[in-house]
Design a protein around this nucleic acid. Sequence first.
DNA 1: TAGTGGTCTAGACCACATG
DNA 2: ATGTGGTCTAGACCACTAG
Lengths: 236, 236
Amino acid sequence: MNASPPRYRQLADLLRADISSGKLKPGDQLPTEMEICASHSVSRYTAREALRLLSEDRLIERRRGAGTVVADTPAPAFAQPIGDFDAILQYARDAIFALEDSGKADDEALAALGLTGDYIRFSGLRRVEDQPPLAVTTIYTIAAHAPHPAIVATLEESVSEWIEREHSVPVERVVQRMEAVALEAASAKKLGVKTGTPALRTIRRYRDASGRVILLSESLHPAGRFAYEMRLERKR
Amino acid sequence: MNASPPRYRQLADLLRADISSGKLKPGDQLPTEMEICASHSVSRYTAREALRLLSEDRLIERRRGAGTVVADTPAPAFAQPIGDFDAILQYARDAIFALEDSGKADDEALAALGLTGDYIRFSGLRRVEDQPPLAVTTIYTIAAHAPHPAIVATLEESVSEWIEREHSVPVERVVQRMEAVALEAASAKKLGVKTGTPALRTIRRYRDASGRVILLSESLHPAGRFAYEMRLERKR
DNA sequence: TAGTGGTCTAGACCACATG
DNA sequence: ATGTGGTCTAGACCACTAG
């Protein structure tokens, strides 16, 4: 005999059915937590757990003070178990960026990355204590919003977070690109490996609402020191 | 002024530090919820929210009655648990899998990939018309569910989709891992590049509900022919 | 059987969004 | 000013694991 699923899951399934049946369309308000408590005779905890499930599946979006609405993007077959945007910043928080050099970005390098305009370059190493460096990283920030090098050198957060906070320029979109390359001499030397060693090249472009590239980071992770892992769960 | 983060987040960060510093190693027991409540003077809700964060990051595993342990997957400090399922499948749809060889998988190869049991191996090339091959790909499928080679050779969908459909074995979880490697002679030859050429190595493990690996695919994309791109939008 | 994590209730205060 | 979701407390019972 199967035990019946917990109430918050049954409740989530009811709400989910309202969404997938079209009774609730993208943008529509869901009942508030208190309304759900009353209408289904459950405590707020149970209602919140149900809403959390839908939220993890990206079916709804919740905003304090504003309420809960059906998300625009309809349900994919697979859902991301955790918040994608914050997760991408995880690496920036865990591995410190040891600044080695900075200055105005030269036009040739910018052109190779598809950037035009004035950018400031910050070069350094990603590392964790007592370990060989994980990567050489170069960050280009739009000159108008660039922090002072002394600030970057002591930053606890990522540079993109600093810019968002200090200049109130929200990052709307991040595109990350990964490919294999051979390390050129300069990067290889900094990493303590031979020229030509394979490396995972990761480029992230952070754009604001107008599509302008606020920040671009390029990291070169030598073979064996870094692997990028992502996990996908099938949603129920 | 920055508001301080909620207590459950601070608590999660403390526990996270114990794990990434090595004070708690994979397999070690974490304090129980009640111990955390007592030692940090928080309610059980707060302790549980903290543990939930770590659990979502796959840093710990919790079992009713047994307790909480640090997850085996070591130092995922730099393995980012994020993903976009469409992005993963995009590649399988665009590039056909040209089967070249198949047979029983040998134990040595399986062991290197962390697999045990009977698997069938399918080896081939990923390509698009009139282009040099994008990758050498090897697929291992659990023997009990393996399709006949003749079926694989003409498959329009991915092998994992075939297995799901034919055997009603739903894939519950996919983990994809990417890193840089140097190509060994055999793969380099098939791709028409020199031995030692850098390549992006992509391994995907498809698991069913019980955690068993139904299918594993390994692809080697030589430098310059393939880039993996993912796009993240800010919510809220 | 004792102790764990999973579920659930009934309260409370707060930050924030909207009118 | 009102109401929302976010955080937090202090209880409770249950299903399950392990000694």
